[in-house]
Computed example of a mutant assay.
Amino acid sequence: MPDPARLRVENVVLTHLDAAYSLARWLVRAPHFAEDVVQEAVLRGLSYFASFRGEDGRAWLMRIVRNTAYTMLAARRQGGQAAEQGQGLDGDMVRNLPDTGEGPDAALSRLEDAARLEQALAALPIELRECIVLKELEELSYKEIAQVTGVPIGTVMSRLWRARRALLVQEGAAGEER
């Protein structure tokens, strides 16, 4: 018979590890550092799991990941280490995607689009980037984003509007350069 506590941990924490890594990667912008953040966040989550009251497990874990990322970034800065910048999509991973049957022009266009999106997101201030990642990539609701970030829903909506507007402005500027 499965242990109920173990099943509860698996349902609350383990099912959301991909989302946790995605958020951490976008916040710290370095894949290996993001892995460390998620590992530390999961350890923190497990140590405080007894205080989990059954609210939204995904939002609960994402908030821990967010707080852990900011704590580890601050510790890194205070320790004299610069956060790894410019870490975009893993180049080898993107180049080794299986052929979808599209021609080389379409594949190149897709890679260029991904690179532009990566640059545009990286250029956003972190509070805007975290909101847009949580909404558009992790598909959290406004309420869940408010829980994760610890700000009112109105602030979430405002940040999303500002992030989307900034992305549109950047796309317009990129279009003029092409």
Rank of each mutant, 00 (worst) to 15 (best):
S141Y: 03
E144L: 01
R76V: 01
D36F: 01
L89P: 08
Y142Q: 08
P152H: 13
Y48D: 13
Q78C: 04
W60L: 00
V156N: 05
L61W: 02
F33C: 02
A30S: 15
S141D: 05
T71M: 04
P104I: 03
E138L: 15
Q81F: 10
C131I: 11
V156E: 08
E127Y: 04
Q147H: 11
N96S: 14
S22F: 12
T68I: 02
R95E: 15
Q85M: 07
F52N: 02
E112Q: 14
A122V: 05
D105L: 14
L117I: 06
P31S: 13
G101W: 03
D90Y: 05
K135T: 04
Y48R: 12
T100D: 15
L97D: 06
L108E: 15
A107I: 08
D90L: 14
A30Q: 09
E40V: 08
N67P: 00
I153N: 09
N67W: 02
I145M: 09
A107D: 12
R76A: 09
I132P: 00
V156L: 09
A106W: 00
A114V: 03
A34K: 06
G88A: 13
M72W: 02
F49W: 07
V28R: 04
F33M: 09
A30F: 01
K135R: 15
M62L: 15
L108N: 12
P98L: 11
H32R: 10
A82P: 05
A106G: 03
V28W: 03
M157V: 14
P104L: 11
E144F: 01
F33Q: 10
R29P: 00
L128P: 01
A24S: 13
F49L: 12
S47R: 14
G54E: 08
R53F: 06
L121D: 02
G91A: 14
E118N: 10
F52S: 05
R63S: 08
I132A: 12
V156G: 09
V28T: 10
A34C: 11
L43W: 03
R159G: 10
A59H: 02
T155K: 08
L128E: 12
A146S: 15
G86T: 06
Y48K: 12
R116Y: 09
D90I: 13
A120W: 05
V133S: 07
L23H: 07
L73K: 11
D36Q: 10
V38M: 09
Q39T: 14
F33T: 09
A120H: 14
Q119N: 12
Y70T: 01
L43P: 00
V42H: 01
S158R: 12
L108S: 11
R66H: 15
Y70G: 08
G54L: 04
G80Y: 08
L134P: 02
E35D: 14
D113F: 11
A122F: 05
G57D: 06
A82N: 07
Q87W: 13
R29E: 15
L61T: 02
L121H: 04
L124N: 05
L128V: 06
C131T: 15
P31T: 06
R53H: 12
P125N: 07
A122I: 03
P152Q: 09
S47H: 08
H32L: 11
L124P: 03
P125K: 04
V94G: 07
D56I: 05
E118H: 05
V148A: 04
Q147F: 08
E35T: 07
P152V: 09
A59T: 03
I132N: 02
